[in-house]
Design a protein around this nucleic acid. Structure first.
Lengths: 226, 226
DNA sequence: ACGGGAAGATTGTTCAACAATCTTGGTGGC
DNA sequence: GCCACCAAGATTGTTGAACAATCTTCCCGT
């Protein structure tokens, strides 16, 4: 059995009425943390025993995760942790390049939102100072999620969350994890400053260039571009 | 048993490997067509018998539809066809007001896309001429879906499809179905013309005003605004 | 080495049972 | 008459076992 599954059942779970959702949450967490890397096969028998739930309940959790594209279901073959490729990266950035600048351009900024962004930027600077790549990645994702939340739309927040989860999968699939985020710490800070100054159009345009560059950098690293 | 379910089992369905998806598709269709109006309770026993599938398989379909927000699941109470209210309408238009203008502004227009839109506009005009409210509604949805598709993103297409499905539910929940779309036929045509002329910013701005007005009109009709 | 095919493993679906929760319809007190 | 309360029934949530369909593996004969 995969070591990443050991002890999952320890966290007591309520009975009746949400076991399927609980299982889905457990798997989502393990996948997001990289304990179950992209491409891993999720065997029904092994998992149902490890989690202490029936195969039927486990399959319900699979249906949920497949709906979120966290997992890929191949008929009669099984369920696998999603393994995003170059095309998926392009799709991720198509979405980001649309909804992030749009939220910056047309969203309204609730009181405190900019201060909250400053906190995130400081967190990124601290992570940069101590050389924590994971810390910078987290702060970066948090900031861009905050940008989208300017839209005020729960659906777009959910879409962004899904996209960022897929980004984490892309990083988990990489052998080496170079420092993608270091260059962006101050660029993020500048972006927040522009929004604070009301320079929405400039911020949106800059953000689109930013995302173009990030996409290119990522595609180069996974070998899709020479 | 609800008459809308009669004969569902007639359409032969493949066995092994996608019964759950097939059931979900059947229900999605019935709901989208208005045969199962918002608020309808979907009983497990009645439905599993009507469709000729086991309760387990039916529940898998429910999980799919709940993930799409087509259906609302209340623990230990049952599954109900989603019944969008005023807040949901506002959320729908938050999304539309963001992704539609963004796609118009930043999407690239593939060859033939504008001609395809012209065809849709003509369809809307024909429906208007013969007084077909349903025809205009269909053409209108088709056009706005085409606008979002300028983004080139499958995820955004999917989000738009979900939003439009929710719009259909809003209309199905209304007692009377007044002519919302008549005024918009020529406005849609003008929008396409602006895009063709390369007036992207003007088109995006006009589209945002358009959507603001449509939201207001709809909220008034469902009684959320005096 | 290579294609074919049987044996085993895995997934897809159903059924029957039980537990937990909700709903319904009295029942009694006030 | 009205309301809290409670028992009985109905419905949902979960399980385990069984079987069918499909995929995988590995052995065999050529």
């Amino acid at each position: 059995m995969n070591a990443a599954l050991q002890g999952i059942a320890d966290a007591g779970h309520a009975t009746h009425a949400h076991t399927g959702a609980w299982v889905a949450a457990q798997l989502r967490q393990r996948i997001s943390d990289g304990l179950l890397p992209p491409g891993t096969k999720l065997s029904e028998q092994a998992l149902s025993e490890a989690l202490g739930v029936s195969r039927n309940t486990l399959r319900e959790a699979f249906t949920v995760l497949a709906g979120e594209s966290v997992v890929q279901r191949i008929p009669n073959r099984g369920v696998f942790v999603a393994a995003p490729g170059a095309d998926d990266v392009r799709e991720i950035y198509r979405v980001r390049r649309l909804i992030e600048p749009a939220a910056v351009l047309w969203g309204d900024v609730p009181a405190g939102a900019l201060d909250a962004m400053d906190v995130i930027v400081d967190k990124a600077r601290a992570a940069l100072a101590e050389g924590s790549v994971a810390g910078m990645a987290d702060a970066n994702q948090e900031l861009h999620k905050a940008l989208v939340s300017l839209s005020g739309s729960a659906s777009l927040d959910a879409l962004m969350e899904k996209v960022l989860a897929e980004m984490r999968l892309v990083f988990h699939a990489m052998a080496t994890t170079p420092d993608f985020h270091g260059h962006y710490v101050e660029r993020n800070a500048a972006l927040v400053a522009q929004i604070r100054n009301g320079e929405r159009e400039e911020a949106a345009a800059e953000l689109r260039r930013y995302l173009d560059g990030a996409e290119h950098e990522l595609l180069v690293h996974i070998g899709a571009i020479p």
